[in-house]
Amino acid sequence: MTDQRPIIGITTYRQAASWGAWREVPADLLPSDYALAVERAGGIPVLVPPLADRDAARAVLGRLDGLLIAGGADVNPARYGQEPDPNVVRWYDDRDASELWLLGEADALRLPVLGICRGMQLMAVAAGGSLVQHLPDVVGHDRHGGGESSYEAIPVVVDPGHRVSALLGEQITSASHHHQAVADHPGFVATARDADGVLQAMEAEGDRFEVGVQWHPETTDDVRVIEGLVDAARDSAARRRDER
């Protein structure tokens, strides 16, 4: 019997890492929370490192059923026409380019997409939007950033009548770790905010699953938004099989 679980590509970091006897070795890596959450949600995770060109992105997506753009470093502010804030000191142009190619090709193929934290921000940038470069300068505190390796519990209110509210209801407590946020998001509907007015979720209109969340559901027991991606990927894969 053919395994009908959808295959979900998850983008990765490419940066120096240390393990065993090796120190500061260039590596493609990602916290295992992402892959484990996709498995719990009913999908098969496949890690996608930064790719060399758009043709590679097209080829990869032709073999996937859905795409998850993971969290990570800041997006290069030049991608949305700004000079870097003093608090924005590191970005990875290879990852920015690869994920923008992947998003463009996912649009062409109408694959389901979920963006988590940086992933949501990149989705907004890909659509021609912009970011708040350093959120504490706007909201007056740094609680959204959590600790050095921990997450802050931030209450989030979800607008009713949208895909995100159908998955999560109208209020959740999010796992937050970010110092940036989405400012402008052309083509996306704002569907959740926190008490500071920070955009916490957005989604595209229409029947395609194209959702971004600012928090980190993969670190919690609540993977309903990832289940939404997996379910949409399963349906999309079935439709493509029927069309062949």
Rank of each mutant, 00 (worst) to 15 (best):
P155G: 10
P155Q: 10
V156C: 04
V157Q: 15
V158M: 02
V158K: 06
V158F: 03
D159L: 11
G161P: 04
G161V: 00
H162Y: 15
V164I: 15
S165Q: 08
S165F: 09
A166M: 06
L167P: 07
L168G: 06
I172Q: 02
T173L: 05
S174C: 00
A175V: 06
H179Q: 12
A181L: 03
V182H: 04
D184K: 04
D184T: 13
D184R: 00
H185P: 00
P186D: 11
G187P: 06
V189R: 15
R193E: 03
D194L: 05
G197N: 04
V198M: 04
V198H: 00
A201R: 04
M202E: 03
A204L: 08
E205S: 11
G206I: 12
D207K: 15
R208F: 10
R208H: 12
R208M: 07
F209S: 12
F209Y: 15
F209E: 13
E210A: 15
Q214P: 07
Q214R: 05
W215M: 07
P217L: 05
T219P: 09
T220W: 14
T220M: 11
D222L: 06
D222N: 11
V223F: 09
V225L: 14
V225R: 09
I226H: 10
E227P: 10
G228H: 13
